[in-house]
Design a protein around this nucleic acid. Structure first.
Lengths: 231, 231
DNA sequence: GTTCAGCCTTGACCAAGGTCAAATCGGTTT
DNA sequence: AAACCGATTTGACCTTGGTCAAGGCTGAAC
């Protein structure tokens, strides 16, 4: 029995829709790997040697300047695809934010397999197009939104992606969730400093819009206010 | 004789590599269209009804907030593909910056054709992955770079994309070029205001890094300085 | 239970870049 | 040549968010 048979993201990842024979072939090429929180999986500007599906956990895609400034350019959740197929180098590092499990493939093998399986390439294309849409709307946030707008938008997006109630499949947005990000990482997503993030969080709490039961925990009290701040 | 036969981007656009029969089929589906400078081709949040290849000219992809702030999230040059295949809505408007010619397809027809021609989908995937890389490095610029760094990075990118010397195929970066952007549009690309853009241009001129022979014209005098400012 | 280290919050201050207003420039029309 | 108009530049001023420097929490280790 292949590990794909027991894969929890089997029907949501790009593997969905492949027939048994194809899954078997993929299964031979790939292997599961655990990545501890904080551990990198792919390095910026390195040769692109591997690609992967996220099984569980959350990972960040990050680019840095020489003088150490960081910008998180993407976040990968379970069933997301990471890495740069059909290209020589990766232009972002991939680092686990939480303990994560991924299903990794050598890029060469994956590229070859993908070219032979149009259905897989199609899935990858759809995912890449959706990611491009999401990335572009994040550009609007980075270029044109104020700090309060950025924070509100971020919290709303998180509440759609995460859910602490254990309710699966998710029904809309979560009221309460646990951030996979430290304050610094929130700052790196939004193009702000850690102090500004902290001050905006505190302000939302004081205004009764959110509760902060612990450092990573967020509870949305007044979603309407958040939507209106997000602009 | 099909218009593809005389198409100047025939070997660079996603049509490259298709056989004669495929080109003939595409040719039946598509039609050429002129878009005047300033004229929109696709509207944000509209149903995604068409996709296109750029034949010549430059177009911007732009998203706006309700209160009128704009962010240019992409720029399309000849041979680039625009529009949102395999999706119900477009998340950015596409507007011509210069007079442009495009080769448009009804999205439905294009989607169907693409699914039947894996080689075409592969080309589209490669292009989309490259665009995602470019978009992500622009996120770093928007989130983490200062105004002088943004302007310098922008001018260097423009000098690689544009060339007034008429030298084709291009040999490296142009020393002198004509911006397809107004000052306001430069501001909308970089997440700045028109005044800041103007001041930074003037400063670079006063420092002897660039010349500004006319409003749209730029000549790079000291590329090294520009690279060092870009960081 | 104490200690410790790392993360987070808060305050005082500062500067980059935004805002508002006016002047200037470059083309075009008359 | 004069008038005009939109785009750009420039100047004065101000706000947002960054910087720097203490403190305060919190959870893990002992």
């Amino acid at each position: 029995m292949s590990s794909c048979d027991t894969c929890v993201v089997r029907n949501r990842a790009i593997c969905a829709g492949l027939d048994n024979q194809e899954i078997a072939a993929l299964n031979v090429m790939g292997r599961r790997r655990a990545v501890a929180a904080g551990e990198p999986l792919i390095w910026e500007d390195d040769d692109s040697l591997l690609v992967a599906n996220v099984i569980d956990g959350v990972l960040k895609l990050v680019t840095s300047t020489e003088d150490g400034r960081e910008q998180i350019v993407g976040v990968a959740y379970p069933s997301d695809f990471i890495g740069r197929p059909f290209g020589q180098t990766s232009r972002a590092s991939v680092v686990a934010l939480t303990d994560a499990r991924v299903c990794v493939f050598a890029r060469n093998d994956f590229d070859r397999f993908a070219r032979e399986h149009p259905e897989l390439e199609h899935k990858l294309l759809e995912r890449t197009l959706a990611e491009l849409d999401r990335t572009r709307s994040w550009m609007m946030l980075l270029g044109r939104k104020t700090a309060p707008e950025k924070i509100a938008t971020f919290l709303l997006e998180m509440s759609e992606r995460l859910d602490d109630t254990g309710c699966t499949p998710k029904v809309g947005a979560a009221r309460r969730f646990s951030l996979p990000f430290s304050r610094q990482q929130v700052a790196d997503v939004l193009g702000l400093t850690i102090e500004t993030v902290s001050r905006q969080f505190t302000k939302l709490k004081n205004d009764g819009v959110i509760e902060l039961p612990s450092r990573r925990e967020v509870e949305i009290i007044d979603r309407g206010a958040l939507v209106s701040i997000a602009g």
